[in-house]
Design a protein around this nucleic acid. Structure first.
Ligand SMILES: [Mn+2]
Ligand SMILES: [Mn+2]
Ligand SMILES: [Zn+2]
Ligand SMILES: [Zn+2]
Lengths: 157, 157
DNA sequence: CTCTTAGTGGAAATGGTTTTCATTATTAAT
DNA sequence: ATTAATAATGAAAACCATTTCCACTAAGAG
């Protein structure tokens, strides 16, 4: 029944078409959710947020779309160790390049952007050197710090 | 049948006992395999290598032991994106602090140790600042570069 | 040696993700 | 607008790495 498309279709539509993909209601709905969230959503999280407005979109479609988005380089797929993949739009309106602090106790995730400039410099240097030495075309990197948040650190016997 | 223990039991035995764990045949076998490998083994990989010599040790024990080893900080648990966890002994005889290059095409993993000194410096600085700002007790970090190895880069469409 | 209980293996359960397949919807061509 | 070609979809089933269960075994303190 909800067959009417949003009048303002963001730039992803063109990006999808450019990659030879069709632009569908489901993909629009998923990107809508991703772009509005500041969190690190699981496939099911996204399904749950899409469902009220678009009850016909199945979990399978969520997974398939997330795969495509990850391949296209629009979305980051993370494993934070809680048994499900988590996704985050890369080029979210205001979201900038960042990395993560992960609590091994409660799985809380903190985005941080400190030292990004210094990091970028080092990463660029490493990337150049490593890609030559190991014949690798490097496309991205992750940096993650693991530890315990204040709450979890306290309650650790 | 194989009830005789190796005469030379490495230092892990003491480490295990110190943490209140018992020292068992299975744990010895698993550490033996891990310490002899330079690779990034899955639980099943380890099971397959333990099995010929110790056919009575089950996959369940492998998982349980790897959990303990990870908690104790003796083993790194990685997700390289191929659907199974991969493990690597941290304090392996000659193995030093290193990070990984991961091929998104064939999942080849390259260990690298370049720039470790510069990285250590930056990481230390970040760790200090981040742990204060976000009230996190940071215990470890990972850095991974993703891309395509020469083989996979060629055969890409 | 005896006793307590941590550790174990095999089978079954779990649960996130993928596959299958008949149906639907998008797109380009008419 | 209609049509044709086929990409995309949803529901159910399959998949499969990992976890749980539970009766049994063995480590190790006393
Ligand atoms: Mn983030
Ligand atoms: Mn390694
Ligand atoms: Zn926490
Ligand atoms: Zn490759």
């Amino acid at each position: 029944m909800p067959g009417i498309r949003l009048s303002t279709s963001p730039w992803w539509q063109a990006r999808f078409r450019g990659c030879g993909y069709r632009w569908t209601l489901g993909r629009e709905a998923i990107l809508e959710v991703l772009s509005k969230s500041e969190e690190h959503l699981s496939a099911e999280d996204i399904y749950l947020r899409v469902h009220p407005k678009y009850p016909n979109i199945g979990l399978t479609t969520i997974y398939r779309t997330l795969d495509i988005l990850t391949d296209m380089g629009l979305v980051w797929k993370f494993d934070f160790g809680d048994g499900r993949a988590r996704y985050e739009l890369i080029e979210g309106s205001k979201k900038m390049h960042h990395h993560h602090l992960i609590c091994k106790g409660c799985n809380r995730i903190v985005d941080y952007t400190e030292f990004i400039e210094e990091e970028k410099e080092l990463v660029k240097k490493m990337q150049n050197s490593l890609s030559k030495k190991y014949n690798f075309k490097i496309t991205s990197h992750i940096i993650q710090f693991y530890g315990f948040c204040s709450k979890c650190d306290k309650q650790k016997d």
